[in-house]
Amino acid sequence: MTYIIYIIVQIMIMLLLAPLINGIIKKIKAFTQKRTGPPILQMYYDLFKLIRKNSVVSEASSWIYKAAPYIVFSTSLTAALLVPVTIKLVPSFNISGDFVIFVSILALGRFFMMAAGLDTGSTFGGMGSSREAMISSLAEPSILVCLFTAGLIAGSTSLDQMMMFMQAKGQGIILMNPAIILLFLALLTIIIMETARIPIDDPSTHLELTMVHEAMILEYSGRHLALMEYGAAIKQLIFITLLVNLLLPHDQFIGAAGLGGILISLLIYFLKVIVITVVIALIEINTVKLRLFSIPNLAALSFILSFLAFLQYFLLGGGYVQLI
């Protein structure tokens, strides 16, 4: 029963919150450019409008093209189940999944998205797939090393177990731990790489020289496009959740149990997500898009940060610095 409640709450929060992140980022960007910008809830309207529209499907495409949006959307939501929004809700038994399968589920969605890019016979789709293949290949080692190190610190590869460990140990000043700081920076870089944000990819452009994610889904329309966009938004929220709940745990500060405790916990989670969203928006405002072949430098940066975190953990012999 708890498991079903967990799944429902998890999925509802992801579904409801994900489009808001994009709205907030757009609003902040518009604000710095002295524009009014679209309403914060614009993406909800867009999604609702898109699913009521008819689709145009390319003549050259096959069933892969039509299956891809559903697979991308459902893999995002399935991956979301492995990243609890609040520890308070996690059932007493473990969730059957760890970070390796988390990465693998997202890879399934990406595989179909890249294949769909090639399916229409359009040059844009192939270009997007080709670039996505490069970026994802570069990001994957950092993600694995980063989560592996966090797992070593916590003694488990399951994401929920890691979060539980972090919050149990987080009574002291968690940000004073160098390994955690390094992991935080590495994961933040990975979020930008994985969610097609500005130094890597510009989500608001349709210029063939720069687009990556948009190029892959260029042919999509109607409900297929809605699913693709929604899937991408959920994936972005998953990574933000991973960052805030793993490396900035908050549940240890809430004594209250039961429904009240869960609600307070969710509220704090929500605030943390907003803060990280603002940080991402600020990064997006203050950087320019990198040249495609400068992306390896960013990937190397995040890899080195996670590698240093591992070294730090390793040199301290697994000890956890507690400054009280």
Binding site: M114, L118, E140, L144, F148
Partner: peptide, 26 residues
């Protein structure tokens, strides 16, 4: 670990290419 990650992601890229170029498109 990093090699497993890189090899896994490159393998996915390689087989999207393998499958996509030979079976999909025109």
């Amino acid at each position: 670990v990093a090699a497993l990650g890189l090899a896994g992601a490159l393998a996915a890229a390689c087989f999207v290419r393998f499958f996509g170029i030979s079976f999909l498109g025109i």
